[in-house]
Design a binder for these strands. Sequence first.
DNA 1: ACTTCGGGAGTTTTT
DNA 2: CTCCCGAAGT
Length: 804
Amino acid sequence: MFPEVASQSPLLQNLNDEQLAAVTLPNEHALILAGAGSGKTRVLTTRIAWLLSTGQVSPGGVMAVTFTNKASKEMMTRLQAMLPVNVRGMWIGTFHGLCNRFLRAHWKLANLPQGFQILDTQDQLSAIKRVMKQFNVDEERFPAKETQWFIAGCKEDGLRPNVVETRSDDDRRKVEIYQLYEDQCNREGVVDFGELMLRSYELLRDNDPIREHYQRRFRHILIDEFQDTNKLQYAWIKMLSGLANDGQMHEAGSVFAVGDDDQSIYAFRGARVGNMADFVSEFRVRHQIKLEQNYRSHSNILDSANELISHNKKRLGKNLRTDQGPGEPVRVYEAPTDLAEAQWMVEEMRHLVRGEGAEPGVPRHEIAVLYRSNAQSRVIETALFNAAVPYRVYGGLRFFERAEIKHALAYLRLLENRNDDTSFLRVVNFPPRGIGARSIEQVVDAARVAGCSLHDAVSATTGKAGANLTAFVARIDAMREQTVNLSLREIIEIMLQESGLIAHYKSERDGADRIENLEELVNAAESFVTQEGFGRDVVAMPVDELSPGMLRQSPASQGLDPSQPEVNEPAPDYVPPDAETGETLSPLAAFLTHAALESGDNQAQAGQDAIQLMTVHAAKGLEFDCVFVSGLEEGLFPSERSMTEIEGLEEERRLMYVAITRARKRLYLSYSQTRLLHGQTRYNVRTRWFDELPEGALKWLTPKNQNFGGSAFGYGSGYPSTRSNGFSSGFASRETFASPQVPAQKTEPSHGLKAKMKVFHTKFGEGTVISLEGQGADARAQVNFPRHGIKWLALSVAKLTPVT
DNA sequence: ACTTCGGGAGTTTTT
DNA sequence: CTCCCGAAGT
């Protein structure tokens, strides 16, 4: 479209053909299939910069959506580096962050209180428990966790209680709880994460002027990680982009969706890969570009990934290539025990860090250990700890999720909103002030009768046992008055003292860390306030401020064609109904919102050069020079629960694909014959993924056992024996293995069952063995019966006869 | 009000 | 086995 621009602009230099084509696509819907390590973020940011600097759109006309705060920050940073533009003022953010911003601007129309606060997952669970207790729901039959999952699932599908389909009494009861929970949230003026999305969607859907305004305004909507969008997010995008439910196109912007179906690993939380195909057909996408050039890994690693993922049936189709040479082979290691596997990894790491011969050492933070489930980190940590190797585990509690921080935030929320019963209950007796379950029950009852908040119920009742409660409420109210017009920092400092939190932790044995964290909260607030634009990301922004004018540099100064096309956007003075321009949230409310939307770092001891430990899920989007993928065993990876469905198995394969593609130079794959799980030793077979990798790219550090895992016998004898696999004798010795661990004595299985075997049970009929565990009297088999589902059967009890 | 005991569960996770 | 929650005991 602008060939002369393409050749001139410094922005577009060093892009490959595919990337350049994607960046300079015309203003129409497009799908970019971006493989791992193909420069996806670069394409997204350059696309925005190019649109802006060629004058095709002004900053106010761009919306860029990501899933994580990290990704949106990255995008802003890189965009800022390319162009002199006020990125904070642009609509770049997470789905939830942008929905929040939208709802802050239109809180009245959205039927929300101005300072509505956001419930995180913990808060949501306790709110649900509260509802269920109040309405005497049997927690045995309806576990709170499941109810929470149900409600979140409904919202992800865009369903309100009145439209959820019910088939059983249990369904109806669940929907009833959903409705009661909604009522409670509305009464208390809080929204959960799903609600942020759903409310925004509904407001766009139901309010024509608002919808039309934003449709006209956002000329370009860019979506990152499109394969992770759920049903509601897809509908939201459709609404904003003018493709309304009637199938009609309205005057609106175009959607630039970037994703990779091969890296879709979040189906369990509502992500629909199908959105990619739907997008192509519903939006009549004419521009599809594949980014297949990989800049990350050597070809042995890439070939392995390609070969593995080619076993998936449902794909849009993509094959990564690299200009880098084959590099090192992918190293495969079999260990006798999980501990031995961990010790081998640690030893290998020490070699890597030290460096060998002319090779310089690898920095520790360039080495990652990936595993399927968090439980697997323990044994690896033990080995690292014993060897005194510094390491860092990802995925613990994040800063704003720590108990002491949640307590402090609860006090702050009560200052902001006295109706926040979740916060009230969290701190009414913390620090302990003699308010027991009995007293709390009374207030809860009183509040229900009066239909008011707990706070108000206390002031309304003059009970005998209520002296402590009255004192508590008085203290909160006094704090609220005392902190009027004070700075955020002062408010928090006063709260920390007056609440008694500091005093309480001072008297506690190991309260020092907690006090430190509380002090860190003050710092977090301070830097939030001094941030440029003062929490712009969470505050409603006057709408007229968003119109042309944020990009003042002339396009010519960017070396671009000055004869830019007309920018077609709403007039700068247009203000959509209800956007109370100039009206801002209090610093406190803004900070609380920030805390809910961005739960902070979850990496302990940042800064130190340490080995990185994380789940494969957590590793998505990251890359390392050296990667260990551990615990590659049937039942673990793929996980037991995924193995019964093809869909589940394909997602596990994608997960493995993600794991492999994290590595730049060196990849290790390892597994163990035995593993301590749930307190007992399990005998595992190596994962089926090994049969889907190109043998030529692999190097077996331990001999590959031909007796097991081969296709002839299917998977999982369940009991590979030490003697038959030649482990103890034919041990490849280059790998430093301080003391080869001999596995515990094992007896041969007597039942003669194998996975995939067809068996007959007198009661359940014919079924297929999925897996086996334990031995002797404890031996159990997991069997899938077509009529009765999956059962665990103790072999000493159940009579299973092999069917030939 | 605080401690201790027992039962049950134990993929993956961001907002 | 180990962690967490809820309930009973002191």
